[in-house]
Structure formats: structure tokens, C-alpha cells
């Protein structure tokens, strides 16, 4: 058994400045080769910050990081700038929610992909351009040859997102980080992009971490899911585990409150309250104030991280009981 491709241990990220924000609090995560992991959480849960730490994309000045992040055996937090720029794009690549912002508006799509190939692989101009065309065809952009010379603003939202995927995959990275790549898209386009990513992942055998707030999207694409709340992972498991038998009250509540299939006029189940502000490091269960099963010890100390099975953990006192909570 090889070491996992991505191994995050006890990652803690704090933003300093006028206000301190404890964005990520002790996240441990591992990802094997060819796996698709969904990082599921609401806004402010720390899912995007965790992803950015994987690529060291956080502003150096204002960020305090502790813990360890190892990708393909390399210590990401210790990399110097040269190693880092070789690492980005080559080993790990990222796609974002807004391709309009992530793509450079003054270069054509073809130039941007070719540039990346030249920089990372030292390829000639002709080879790089050929690769760019190949990539655009791979992401099923119609009349790819013509699109090589298109600027980002000349493309529709869905096409831009395909172009960004082509750019991200141009150097055949081992890991693709996807930060809500379908959130800004229309429903009929979103499903196309999800299916494309699923197919590309299978063909290229890469690992994917997919950040999303939408459980439906996670179901379409992920093998494993880690649910985040207030900067911590509260539950991990296979997709089936999380969707069918969630053990932590937060994912339980999240699934129960989905509108999908709810009868019209019937009251929706809700999680009362709002997520905590993150101006202090958690000293107790962050979910306790909103939890229907909260006990005294939940508010006194951090909940245990209970391992139910390999790859299946629940950060809740309830998981210590052998009886399933649902």
C-alpha cells in the first residue's frame, strides 16, 4: 500500500489582520490515487481555504498555517518558490467558480494553454499549440481549432469553464482541485460539466478534490465525501455512507432540510440558528449551539474524532454509541 497522494495532517489556518479568523481548525485528510473526494460545506466552512492551502495560494502575510500538507511525498508548506511554481500546474492544478476571472482576458485560450505547456514541459511552440488543440478537443469544445484563437470574453460561460478545465489539465496533473466549478453555471450546463469532469477523471486516472456546497453536485461526481463545518471536518465516508447513513447531526440536518422530494406545504426540517463566527479557536463542539442532541460535554470540550471504519470518521460524541443515530 502506497502512501496517499495527498496527506493533510492537523492543518490549522488562521487569518490575522484587523480581525482574526480561525478559518481551518485541525483538518486531516487523505486522498488516494484516482479518487474523487468531495469537500462539502456551507460558505465560511473553510473548504475553499483548505484547498488553497494545498496549492499554497493563501496570502503569506496575513496567514498563519500549522500542521502538515504532503502531496505526492513532497512537503508543500516547505517548498521554495521555484519548486512551488513547478508543482503548481504540474502536480496539482485548480479550476475555479468564475472562469471569467481565472482566465487572462488579453490572451487567447490557445495562447494560454500553450504557454502553460511550454513553461512546465519546455515544449516547442508547435508542440505546445498542438497540445492546446488536443486539450480543447478533449473537453469537447466544438470547432476547437477555431476556438484556439478565441478570447475568454468571446465564449459563453459553459465554454469558458471547459477552456479552464483544458488549461488546468494541459500538463496532465496528478491532482485536480475544483473549487465550486459549476456553481455559477446554468443547470443544463452544470450537468454537462460534471459529466465531463467525471469522464476526464476516469480517462486520465487523476485524483480530484471537489469543493461544493451542493450535495446534489457531490452525489454526481464524488466517491468519498468530507463534510466541513466551522473549519473542521465533522464527518468523512464514502458517498453512500454520507448520503444514506450520516452519523453527525450536521450532515443529518443538511440532508433532512433539502427541498428535494419535500411535499408542498409541508414544513421543511431545518437546522436552527446560524454558523458560528470564527473569531476564536474552537474549544468545544462548534455545532453544539444548533444541535438537537447536544449534551453538556459537547459544550465543554472538543468532541472526539471517532473512527468507525477505515476512511469513515465522525467528530461527535454520538458516534461513540454503537446505535446508529438515524
Amino acid at each position: 500500500m502506497n502512501a496517499p497522494l495527498v496527506d493533510i495532517r492537523d492543518l490549522t489556518i488562521r487569518f490575522t489582520g484587523e480581525r482574526t479568523v480561525y478559518a481551518v481548525n485541525g483538518v486531516s485528510l487523505s486522498l488516494g490515487e484516482g479518487e474523487v473526494l468531495g469537500l462539502l460545506g456551507e460558505s465560511g466552512s473553510g473548504k475553499s481555504v483548505t484547498m488553497r492551502a494545498l496549492m499554497r495560494l493563501l496570502p503569506k502575510k496575513r496567514t498563519v498555517i500549522s500542521g502538515s500538507v504532503a502531496v505526492a511525498g513532497q512537503d508543500v508548506l516547505a517548498m521554495d518558490d521555484a519548486t512551488l511554481s513547478a508543482f503548481r500546474g504540474r502536480t496539482v492544478s485548480m479550476i475555479f467558480q468564475e472562469p471569467a476571472l481565472a482566465l487572462d482576458p488579453v490572451y487567447t485560450i490557445g495562447q494560454q494553454i500553450a504557454e502553460s505547456v511550454k513553461r512546465h514541459e519546455g515544449a516547442s511552440h508547435a508542440t505546445a499549440t498542438a497540445r492546446a488543440l488536443e486539450m480543447l478537443e478533449l473537453v469537447r469544445i466544438p470547432s476547437a481549432k477555431r476556438r484556439l484563437d478565441a478570447y475568454p470574453h468571446e465564449m459563453s460561460g459553459g465554454m469558458r469553464q471547459r477552456a479552464m478545465i483544458a488549461l488546468a489539465l494541459a500538463c496532465k496533473p496528478k491532482i485536480l482541485l475544483a473549487d465550486e466549478p459549476t456553481t455559477a453555471l446554468d443547470a443544463t450546463v452544470q450537468i454537462q460539466i460534471l459529466l465531463l469532469l467525471r469522464e476526464l477523471q476516469r480517462e486520465m486516472g487523476m485524483s480530484v478534490i471537489f469543493v461544493t456546497h451542493d450535495i446534489g453536485v457531490a452525489i454526481e461526481i464524488c466517491d468519498k465525501v468530507a463534510v466541513m463545518y466551522a473549519g473542521q471536518i465533522v464527518e468523512t465516508g464514502t458517498l453512500g455512507d454520507i448520503v444514506r447513513t450520516p452519523r453527525h447531526p450536521y450532515p443529518q440536518g443538511l440532508l433532512a432540510s433539502t427541498v428535494h422530494g419535500a411535499r408542498r406545504g409541508a414544513r421543511l426540517q431545518t437546522i436552527p440558528g446560524t454558523p458560528p463566527s470564527l473569531d476564536q479557536a474552537p474549544a468545544a463542539c462548534s455545532f453544539a449551539p444548533r444541535c438537537a442532541h447536544a449534551q453538556q460535554r459537547c459544550t465543554e470540550r472538543l468532541p472526539p474524532d471517532v473512527e468507525l471504519a477505515p476512511g469513515r470518521t465522525v467528530r461527535c460524541v454520538l458516534a461513540e454509541n454503537p446505535v446508529p443515530a438515524s
Binding site: 446554468d186 443547470a187 443544463t188 450537468i191 460534471l194 459529466l195 452525489i219
Partner: peptide, 27 residues
Amino acid sequence: RALLAAMPALDPDQRTQEPPITGDPPN
């Protein structure tokens, strides 16, 4: 029909296999 089919399923065993329509909404 396409809109309804494009909704992500909530069942891991019934993932969408084919996009219901291709392309983006026209301008």
C-alpha cells in the same frame, strides 16, 4: 424535460449518465 433531467439526482446509484441537452443557452 431537459431542465428536469439536468437536476442532480439525490441517489448515488442513479447518477446522470447523459447530459439532457448539449451546449449553452444561446445569447
